[in-house]
Write a protein that binds this DNA or RNA. Structure first.
Length: 276
DNA sequence: AGCCTTTGACCAGCG
DNA sequence: TCGCTGGTCAAAGGC
């Protein structure tokens, strides 16, 4: 079990290093806060509203910055940082506002370089950071992160998932936002974490999925980590509950579970597309 | 009776 | 080898 987790981490790390190593992007250092993003999220497309040349230039800068940040995520734990980086190299989500600010700062710096290469008039017409503000474009990992956090507090990875939500309202108990039923099997105060971490496993027989939830004193979830994939549907799980609890669970499920699950499914596809 | 949470103990990995 | 740490187990008690 723990070995599986370790293997997952190792494989992710290998993939990340391979990806980073294959990149020809020159390192770009963003002053101040450093953040980390999964590499696949930096697959960027040219922006329709901009000239293709400008768009490519901007995307290349974003991609290079993303790669730089992701490489640094690999080094997490080896170096000290005063940023809000999550101290795990699996999936790291940084508040979109921070990232947007970073991007703007970076673009400000980059704009000076572009000035040398492009006509000043062109630069006055193009704001490189603008694409990240368009909610309909999945141009950057930051925009995706923003979407994910807005739509749901749960984000899946195939092997292991990490969610960082600063103001989650759904709890991690019996029927959480994902609609599955969980049983708590442990709790521990983890070093480096403000709040105790609770360990849950899916109550469905033979379902290997577990999740870890860190919750603040006021009950708000500060972090959720999913591990594994459900080998059953939610409906199957509902059917398996006892009749006495079924009524209670169905009421919860009918109330918010469906909506939240729909959001989750959207997030699943988003992550598969952008992170892996 | 069945299922849940709580919580201290235990185990394995790692430096 | 040893201590630290994260993850899990399992007994006890509650609903």
């Amino acid at each position: 079990m723990q070995e599986n987790s370790k293997n997952s981490r190792d494989s992710l790390r290998e993939s990340a290093e391979q990806f980073a190593g294959s990149s020809n992007a020159s390192p770009i250092i963003i002053s101040g806060i450093e953040a980390a993003i999964k590499p696949k999220a930096v697959r960027l497309k040219p922006v329709a509203n901009h000239s293709s040349e400008i768009a490519v230039k901007c995307d290349a800068a974003i991609q290079a910055a993303s790669l730089k940040l992701y490489k640094e995520s690999i080094e997490i734990g080896k170096e000290k940082s005063n940023s809000i980086i999550l101290y795990r190299p699996i999936a790291q989500v940084v508040p979109s506002s921070t990232l947007l600010k970073k991007l703007e700062d970076h673009e400000e710096h980059n704009r000076n370089l572009i000035d040398v290469q492009f006509q000043t008039q062109q630069l006055n017409q193009v704001n490189c950071s603008q694409p990240t503000l368009n909610p309909h474009q999945s141009l950057t990992p930051w925009s995706n992160t923003n979407e994910l956090q807005c739509s749901s507090n749960s984000v899946y990875e195939s092997e292991k998932t990490k969610v960082k939500s600063q103001h989650a309202t759904n709890n991690g108990d019996l029927y959480s936002s994902d609609g599955y039923k969980w049983r708590k099997y442990g709790q521990k105060q983890v070093k480096g974490s403000k709040y105790p971490r609770a360990y849950y496993r899916c109550t469905h027989p033979s379902c290997p999925v577990k999740k870890m939830v860190e919750r603040s004193k006021d009950g708000e979830i500060s972090e959720i980590v999913y591990r594994g994939d459900h080998n059953h549907s939610m409906s199957q799980q509902i059917k398996q509950t006892s009749s006495s609890r079924l009524r209670e669970q169905e009421s919860v499920f009918d109330g918010n579970g469906r909506k939240l699950m729909d959001d989750l499914l959207v997030n699943d596809s988003l992550l598969e597309e952008n992170f892996f």
